[in-house]
Design a protein around this nucleic acid. Sequence first.
DNA 1: CTGAAAGCGCTAACAT
DNA 2: ATGTTAGCGCTTTCAG
Lengths: 335, 335
Amino acid sequence: MTARRPTLKDVAERARVSLKTTSRVLNGEKSVRPETEQRVRDAMAELGFRPNDFARRLRLGADSSSIGLVIEDLSNPFYSGIAHAIEQRAHERSLLLVIGSSQRDPETERRLVLALSQRRVSGLIVVPAGHDHAHLSAELDRGLQIVCVDRPAEGVAADVVVADNEGGARLAVTHLIRQGHRRISYLGDDAKLYTSIQRRAGYQAALTLHGADDDPALARTGLPDATAAEHAARELLTGPTPPTAFFTGNNLLTIGALHALRSLGRTDVAVVGFDDFEAADLVVPGVTVVRHDAADLGRLAADRLFARLDGDRSDPAVKMLPVHLITRGSGEITP
Amino acid sequence: MTARRPTLKDVAERARVSLKTTSRVLNGEKSVRPETEQRVRDAMAELGFRPNDFARRLRLGADSSSIGLVIEDLSNPFYSGIAHAIEQRAHERSLLLVIGSSQRDPETERRLVLALSQRRVSGLIVVPAGHDHAHLSAELDRGLQIVCVDRPAEGVAADVVVADNEGGARLAVTHLIRQGHRRISYLGDDAKLYTSIQRRAGYQAALTLHGADDDPALARTGLPDATAAEHAARELLTGPTPPTAFFTGNNLLTIGALHALRSLGRTDVAVVGFDDFEAADLVVPGVTVVRHDAADLGRLAADRLFARLDGDRSDPAVKMLPVHLITRGSGEITP
DNA sequence: CTGAAAGCGCTAACAT
DNA sequence: ATGTTAGCGCTTTCAG
């Protein structure tokens, strides 16, 4: 015999008042005699009453007072940093955060977006995966507010908050060139990803601008993780025309490259990585990186979404955050 | 003129069928003529219809098909690792994950738990903060399934999944003693925290068991972050009776201690830390740590919760996960 | 195969 | 200060 969850009506009967009076107490409306209010409150406590959120929101025509976040991989510190910043901002507005990891799978992303929309999230922040973003446009058309973070969704009229990937890469590679390097290798992940494209472009731009070697063999992309980067770096270093420096496209690949250098006993090769990481300053030499702040990215994305929820109807805009070169030693090794 | 969101009734009218038939199509019931079904589907598409989840769940008496997670700090890789594992498991069951960070504040935790319960999450996973867990018991009494992870909530009859903190600490300190250390310092965070208590206990137990120095001045707790640990370590090292080894209570404190050693130019002091961290093997020497897997913790907590949701009514149990000592060099330095 | 009516639990009007 | 009635959008009897 599983006792039915008590409803407002049950409370009303127990307190010997009408449903409406009970509702008044629940909602803190003032026009209730203190004595009556107390009786109602007692009844609620005795019954362990909890208002039914669905009924309430249905009646009010409200949304779920939560925002949805579809992110790539919550276990990656960069993305969880974004998520945390968003969660903090949401908390300030008494909104809950519903999270789903797309695992870079466009279909998973699509399903998550749909599920979140169905649950009537107040707004959505997405790290877009894949290339077909029709489902996002469809939600926008239905009136759901969407903000993209870390990369834009091509062809979707939504706000975007991104880091200056291209500029950061140019900064990194120019720095290496200034140290005297001519043969600089680029290690990157999925070449079709927006961030990869931008970083690769910055790499190329810097090479061209300063007349460094633009040898296609030096650019290795499609590296999914640290191990792949380690293999690629080792191959390059032991090949016929090795690089004297690496520019690595993300934190995992940086770590992979450093493992390769370590295992080959090479201390004469420079490394600059995109993304900072824990203990980067404890490695010897310290790892020079292009840092971009995940928390800032998340914060600004949340703020953009809230502005929209508050009625901002201006044209969708791209917000690009600056990045910084943190020199710690590994990028200052000369050839 | 913001057009009202179309309802099932609107769809029914447009398709010139009854509400019920439309509902049948929506729910994929078979007893609808294909032709009728098509008309309804067309109407839905034309109107951009989306079923109202609140109405649906209200009518069905269902919960929100999501699970709540109240965690300490999503930006800490350890906790985001837990969160990610839970999210993956939830995804397999088509459940969404609603996350809130308590920031170690019991009042924030209480509010989050209440909010999640009100939203009718199917179940709750909590990293308990503080000491008064009455709100958790209250939810349990109302029938909400709760699993605690990383630490138990004292006095609450809920399942718990924790790492073997005490055993891990004993392992670490015994290892240092075996290297010949007698004066081993313990750096810990908030001394009232369950994990801290356990790790501290393991430290003491090992000291006592092997007759190493149990000097109270060597144990420093209440260190909130890496910087605090760095200061504490430096003080100890430059004090009258310095330790020859450190056992650090979490990843942040380990990094702080390493910074202190680095800045003092000390390479003769051993360090073993609780928690593994990114690039721990790239530091020189590699950092010896007690590793416990956040993903395992999350996975098992989720599995426990799902078992409960599936009707398991056995007594609440504590699941303790083993930890492993990863020797990389820093813990093998002899005095 | 299709439809009319009732009701999930709550709040907003409109009484009293 | 309190109560009555209607209805949010959906699904579920129960009829046709």
